[in-house]
């Protein structure tokens, strides 16, 4: 069989539509995951044992198991456990939930190390002025930690973009899944998957440029 290199270009519109879905899942999951992750980070550093160990357990579970297994647990496992029939399009909900929960575990560790990298003297100074724990976090620690966490958060964003390709496994029409369908139709894996790979590469490189730029901007402001 002759390899038809032109197929990649020909199918670009379909692949780009898939890429849009990939971006959509990544952005939403990183956004929700970061918010959730901040709470898990604070919970993990809390002095309340139940809260602390719940957060430790959560973070360890989601970092220590494969994302694909997590996706299947939520997509197939949860409906089965609670005995509800999957509504139409449940795979999208499951996809968002799985990616967000997974991302939260990673960002929690990023926030935690960011917060812990701030000199303890900052917390003491804030507390000695009569600020509550919450005020000290809100006005003193988090604004400083934020600068520290931008680069690792950017890396997590990039990792998420790539890992979201696992959603193809539950038939979400992301970039990879769109490629798979075209391959099934044309039997031309090389041109198609290579195009898919290049689109992923383009997106991750654009992201890392953005991260570098933000990093430099933040570096300048202080």
């Amino acid at each position: 069989m002759v390899i038809d290199w032109g197929l990649g270009i020909e199918n670009l519109p379909i692949l780009l539509r898939g890429a849009k879905i990939t971006i959509q899942f990544t952005v939403v999951s990183v956004f929700l995951g970061s918010i959730l992750g901040l709470f898990f980070a604070l919970g993990r550093m809390s002095r309340i044992p139940i809260l602390k160990y719940f957060c430790v357990g959560y973070i360890d579970f989601f970092r220590g198991t494969p994302l694909l297994v997590q996706i299947l647990l939520i997509y197939v496992g949860v409906p089965h456990l609670f005995g509800f029939t999957m509504p139409d399009n449940y795979q999208y909900i499951a996809g968002y939930i799985a990616l967000s929960l997974n991302c939260a575990a990673y960002t929690a560790e990023i926030f935690r190390s960011g917060i812990q990298s701030i000199d303890p003297g900052q917390m003491e100074a804030a507390r000695s002025l009569g600020m509550t724990q919450y005020q000290a976090m809100r006005y003193i620690i988090l604004p400083q930690a934020f600068k520290v966490v931008v680069p690792p958060l950017g890396n997590e964003f990039i990792a998420m973009l790539k890992d979201s390709s696992l959603l193809a496994f539950i038939a979400i029409e992301d970039l990879l899944y769109s490629g798979k369908i075209i391959v099934g139709r044309t039997f031309q894996p090389m041109p198609i998957y290579l195009t898919v790979a290049l689109i992923y590469l383009f997106m991750t490189m654009a992201l890392s440029l953005l991260v570098n730029y933000t990093e430099r901007r933040l570096g300048k402001s202080d």
């Binding site: 000199d119 003297g121 900052q122 003491e124 202080d222």
Partner: peptide
């Protein structure tokens, strides 16, 4: 007042 000042750098 602390030995190392501990001003808020931001």
């Amino acid at each position: 007042v602390f030995q190392r000042f501990n001003l808020f750098p931001h």
